[in-house]
Amino acid sequence: MAADLSLPLVAERSFWSTQRIIGVALLAAIVAFAFVTPFVFDGSPTRQSLRNVLGAPTVLEPLGYDHLGRSMLARMSAALRLSLGLAFLSVITAAVPGIALGILAAWKGGWTDRLISLVADAFLALPGLLLVLMFIAIVQDAPWALYVGISLVLWIEYFRLTRSITRALVLSPAVQASQLLGFGPLYIVRRHIWPEIAPLVLTVGAFGAASAIAAIAALSFVSVGVRPPTPELGLMMTELLPYYHEAPHALLQPVVAVFLLILSLNLIAGSNSR
C-alpha cells in the first residue's frame, strides 16, 4: 500500500513542457528555412546586381536586396546554415571530450582529477571571447579557428557538470552493486551515469549552442573570423549598418535571426529549471 500511495507522486514531470515545445518548433522553423530555401529558391548569396541595390522586398525576392544588390533570402539562409552548422559542431566537439574528461576525473580522482581540473580552471580564468580572439590571432585566416576556439571555451561546462554528478554516483551503492555483480565501467557509464547527465547535457548543449551563435556573430561583427563575401549574421549586420536609413528591413533581418535562434535555444534549455 505504500507503493500505491506514492506512485502518482513519482516525478512524472513531462520532458515536453509548453516552453520547450515552442522552442523546438521555432528552431525547427529556422532550420527548415536555412536548409530548404536553397532547393526552392534559385539564387546565389554572392551574385551582385547593382540595379537592385537595397531593393525592397518583392514577390520574387521576399526579403529584398542588400547594399550590393545580393539576394537577402539567399544570404540569410546561407548565413543561418553557417551559424547553425558551426554551433552544432562546436557543441559536439565541446561535449564529447568534456563529458569524457568529467567522467574520467570523477572516477579516477586523485592526480588525474587534479590535473584535468587545473587545465579546466586555466581555461576558465581567461574570458571566453578573448580566448577565441587569441586563438584566431595565432592561426590566422583559418575558418576552422573560430570553431576550435569556441569549443575550447565550451567544453569546461560539460566537464564540470559531468564531474560533479559522476563523483556522487560512483560512490553510490547502486554503482557498487553493479560492480559487485560483475559489470564493467562501460556498463556503469551507460546505465548509471549517462541517464543522469543526459537531460542536463541537453540543457547545457542548448545554452552552449546559443552562446556559440552569439560568439560567432559578435566576432564577425568586429571583423574577426569570417571574411566577406561569406554571408554571416554578424558580418551582415556590420555591412548593412551604414544603410540603416535607406533599408532598415535589410539590417533588421540578421538581427531578428540571431534573436530568434538564441530565443529558441534558450526556450529549449530553460524549461528544466521550472
Partner: peptide, 8 residues
Amino acid sequence: PAAFPQKV
C-alpha cells in the same frame, strides 16, 4: 532504491 540504477 539506492542500489538500483535510478532511471532504468
